[in-house]
Amino acid sequence: MSAPLLDVDNVSVTFNVTRQGAWPWTPPGKLQAVKDATIALEPGKTLGLVGESGSGKSTLARAIVGTVHASAGRVLWRGEDLRAMSPARQRAHGRHVQMIFQDPLAALNPRMTVGQVVAEPLTTHYPDLSKSEVRERVGKMMERVGLLPALVNRYPHEFSGGQCQRIGIARALITEPELVVCDEPVSALDVSVQAQVVNLLQDLQRERGLSLLFIAHDLSVVRHISHKIAVMYLGRIVESAAAADLIANPRHPYTRALIASVPIPSPKAERARHRPVLEGELPSPLAPPSGCVFRTRCPIVRPACAERVPPVEHVGPDHVVACPYHGQDAEAQSSTA
C-alpha cells in the first residue's frame, strides 16, 4: 500500500442551526453533518462515496476541499494538516484539489464566458502566465474534454447540461490537480450523457494519474468507476472496502439494502430476486438516534444497538464495517433466501 495522498482522520463537521423564531440568546442547535469519518485516498485511485440524500457525503467532500471547516479531526494532505494551514496557504493548496459539482449550470458564473470560467483557476494560481499562453491552454483543455475551442466566447446558458459538466471538468483539470472531488457529477444528467462523463473522467484519470473522490447516491455508477467504496449513513461511514469486495460480500445491513436497491436490467432476474426494502426515512441529523444511528431502520436491530456506538471492525483486508452483528446477519440472510 503506497502512502496516501489524502488522509481523512476522524473528521467531524458540526453546523450551528438556529431554530426559526428563537431568541438571539438561545443556544443554537447542533447539526452533526459528519461524525468521525475516516477515509484514505491513494494516488491515481478512485474512492467512491455512497449514501442516500442527507447522509453527509457532500459535507465531507467540502471539508476535504476546505470550503467547510471540520470541527474535529484532521484532513491530511500528503501528511500536512489542512486546518493548520494559513488562509493564503490554503488558497494556494486549491491548485492540487479541485471540485466538480452536481448542478453543472449553477456551477458556472452566468456572466462569464466559458473561456473566462475555465481560465480562472489558471490565472489565480499562475498570475504570471501570458494571455496567449492562457488562451492556448484553455483551448487545449476544452478540446481534451470534447468541446470545440472556438466556443470560448460563449456563455454557459448556451450549452446543454452535459456540455456544462464538461466545462466544469475542464475548469477542474486546468491546473493539473492531483485530486478531483466529484460531488455527484452525473446525477443531474441523462443516462447516456452520464456514461460519457464517467468515461471522460476515467480516461483523464488514466492519462494524468488523477485521484478521484467520486460521490453519488447511485451505487451502479460508483461501482463502475471506483477502486474503493465507502458507504455513509447519517454522517457516519458504516462500511468501506475494495469495490469488488464490497459488492460481492457486503457486511453492513445498510450496504446490503443499498445493493439490493440497484435494479437489475433483466425483468426475470429482477422479479426472482429477494429485495429487502428499507422502511422509514432518514432520522433528523439534529437528533440522531442513540448508539447505532442505523438502528431505527435496521432489519436485524437488537436492544443492545441503542446503548453503544458500534465499534469499527476489520473484517478483511481493507474491509471495515461498523456493525457488531454483521456475521450473524449473513447466516440469517442465507436461511431466509
Partner: peptide, 9 residues
Amino acid sequence: FVEAAVATG
C-alpha cells in the same frame, strides 16, 4: 459557482 471559486483558491 461561488463555491467553485472559493475551492479554487
